[in-house]
């Protein structure tokens, strides 16, 4: 029997990067402690914020919602869940039911809307009529989702939008931007995103910035947190999958590589004169001529994509 390093009960999980064996209770303690430390160390939010948790029904956002209830509800922090129905076959309706039921169980406020209601078009409708040169359907859906999240956050006076992005997502993003030679995007990412102070676009915060994806899945399974186990029928991310594989292969050969990559990235970001590098985007922003969102051009990316589709 493998024993927990803290209490000598039977271990449930082994974390190769720290050679830790933990039982359920001590894994939970370790996991929650790191989550709180990340929020504190990176000033992700405080008790003056009103946090909207972008909850898709996947494991990351459902665990995030569960932890806000467990840790921040007793401390009287203000937060709610936000669900955006993309309108993709019955996938969106199933995830909507899952999120609605979980919010009821947790007694957490839920703000719901859809691509159709806010933008006049669903992802399903976009999927038959989009410009493949501009990207995959996920590009369109992502732009639409960000826009709807912002609209809802502004209506509700939410100050920050929390997403379930985890350590693995961030490793993939950092490497992708680095190998794309995209310095602006490279420096834009981090535990709190956006390097320009936008008035109408709410800051995005990532409380799982330093939490490995596998541990989020383990935490959900060990603690019976419901989550939707199928992928979106439209999901396609060939490039991201390539980086996911590369990073996971590296992690197995050299445990701790994911943490090292992100910590190195944060050090580089800290040392660099970001304003100099991102001078191009630091000019005053305009208001989108169609929707009023802040944009570096005349029309924001979301409206441009929709306009291109004549929607």
């Amino acid at each position: 029997m493998v024993k927990c390093e803290k209490c000598k009960k039977e271990a449930l999980i082994y974390l190769a990067y720290g050679k830790h064996n933990f039982c359920k209770d001590h894994f939970n303690e370790f996991f929650e402690k790191r989550f709180k430390k990340n929020i504190r160390q990176h000033n992700i939010f405080n008790n003056k914020d009103y946090i909207g948790i972008a909850t898709s029904g996947g494991k990351d956002s459902m665990v995030l919602l569960y932890l806000f209830n467990k840790i921040f509800k007793p401390k009287r922090y203000k937060f709610c869940a936000i669900f955006v129905n993309e309108g993709t076959h019955n996938y969106s309706d199933k995830t909507e039911k899952l999120v609605t039921d979980f919010c009821k169980k947790l007694d957490t406020k839920l703000i719901k809307s859809s691509h159709k209601d806010e933008l006049g078009v669903s992802t399903q409708e976009v999927s038959v009529n989009y410009n493949k040169k501009e990207g995959s359907i996920c590009t369109y859906c992502g732009v639409m989702r960000r826009k709807v999240l912002n609209i809802l956050a502004n209506k509700e006076n939410i100050t920050k939008i929390a997403t379930g992005h985890n350590l693995d997502d961030e490793c993939q993003t950092v490497l992708m931007n680095l190998l794309d030679n995209d310095a602006i995007r490279f420096f834009r990412t981090g535990p709190v995103t956006g390097i320009i102070d936008l008035k109408e676009t709410k800051p995005r915060i990532k409380p799982f910035y330093l939490t490995p994806e596998k541990e989020i899945a383990a935490y959900a399974l060990y603690n019976d947190i419901p989550f939707y186990k199928e992928d979106c029928p439209f999901y396609k991310a060939a490039k991201r999958n390539h980086f996911r594989e590369f990073i996971n292969e590296t992690e197995v050969m050299h445990p701790g590589s994911k943490f090292s990559l992100i910590k190195s990235f944060l050090k580089i970001k800290d040392l660099c004169d970001i304003k100099k590098i991102t001078n191009k985007i630091n000019k005053p922003l305009n208001k989108c001529e169609i929707c009023g969102s802040e944009t570096s051009g005349k029309i924001c990316k979301s409206c441009q994509l929709l306009k291109d589709m004549k929607i």
Binding site: V2, A11, L12, I13, Y14, N21, K59, D168, E213, K214, A217, A218, L221, Y222, D231, Y235, N241, R244
Partner: peptide
């Protein structure tokens, strides 16, 4: 659930849960 640090000396059947998109 079992940790991957476990060893066995007998034949055993294990269930593998693919928790991350591959």
């Amino acid at each position: 659930f079992i940790p991957i640090s476990k060893t066995y000396k007998k034949e055993v059947e294990l269930e593998v849960l693919e928790v991350i998109k591959m």
